Amino acid sequence: MSVAENNKPEEKNAFWETIVVLVQAFILAGIIRTVLLQPFTIPSGSMVPTLLVGDYLLVNKFAYGYSRYSLPLYNPEWFKGRLFGSEPARGDVIVFRLPPDPSVDYIKRLIGLPGDKIQMIDGVLHINGKAVPRDAAGTFKSDDSETNGRAVPVYRETLDNGVSYDTLDLDPLSGADNTQEFVVPAKHYFFMGDNRDNSTDSRFTVGYVPEENLVGRATFIIFSIGNKTPFYEVWNWPANLRLSRFFKGIQ
């Protein structure tokens, strides 16, 4: 019997061991994605300057417990409500399922809790009749078409729980700067984008978001590439990578 024939059983065993390892890796990745962390990419500028087009981030799916919307394949018959649920905090950046179409993921900042009264007056956010402090914080210019190459005013808001974040004011005369007063229903939340004049959010067609629609809290950016460069265009990475945003926490 030749040496090659002696090695065949070992080669066969090594092949199946490799298959088993790969299957285990896929199962583990599926569990992590379903239960713990899920990757998302930012396709639009509604959360500029906090999140930019081309940011790739991880979302903590354990933060608020689990609902039928937390699972990869949405099925309205699985169960209702939340398991291991916990309350989100005002100011959290959250991924949720769009109420009119639960197959769509949105990411916005949580502004209104159940029972809150929310209103925009002359570009200033008001919560329960009180203006949220808003301080000028310089300007912002995007590396894509979001700001059309111009420097846009940035305002830093500070909520009553101490959470601070930057917002953009693309148009000081925007229709989004003055709204009706919204009263958030029980077990619902009110979301807004940080790019206040260019965000489809709870002020408009999104409406109030049921608590079971929450998917998870955005935690940190793992990768970022500018100028709307597709991820697969590796040859364009050197000129477009935003290295300063790698592993940056989201506030």
Rank of each mutant, 00 (worst) to 15 (best):
S44C: 07
P39R: 12
N7K: 04
K8Q: 07
R33F: 08
V21P: 00
V20E: 12
A4M: 01
E5T: 00
T18Q: 04
A29N: 10
L22Y: 10
L37P: 03
I19T: 08
K8M: 03
G45C: 03
G30S: 11
V23G: 13
T41M: 14
G30L: 07
E17R: 15
R33Y: 11
E17F: 05
S44Q: 09
V21W: 13
T41I: 09
L37S: 08
S46M: 00
Q24F: 10
P49H: 02
G45A: 06
A29P: 06
L51I: 05
L22K: 07
L51A: 03
V3P: 04
Q38N: 14
A14L: 15
P49K: 01
P43S: 01
I27N: 02
T50N: 06
F15C: 08
Q38D: 11
W16K: 10
W16H: 10
V35G: 15
I42Q: 05
S44K: 07
V35L: 15
V23H: 14
E11R: 14
F26L: 14
M47E: 04
N7L: 11
T34A: 08
V20C: 06
S2H: 03
K8R: 09
E10R: 14
V48R: 06
N13P: 04
M47F: 05
P9A: 12
M47T: 06
P39K: 12
L22R: 05
F15I: 13
N13A: 14
V23E: 13
A4S: 04
I19C: 12
V23T: 15
S44T: 15
V23K: 13
L22D: 05
I19R: 15
P49A: 01
N13D: 11
F26A: 14
G30V: 07
V21A: 11
L36Y: 14
K12P: 01
P9F: 10
A14G: 09
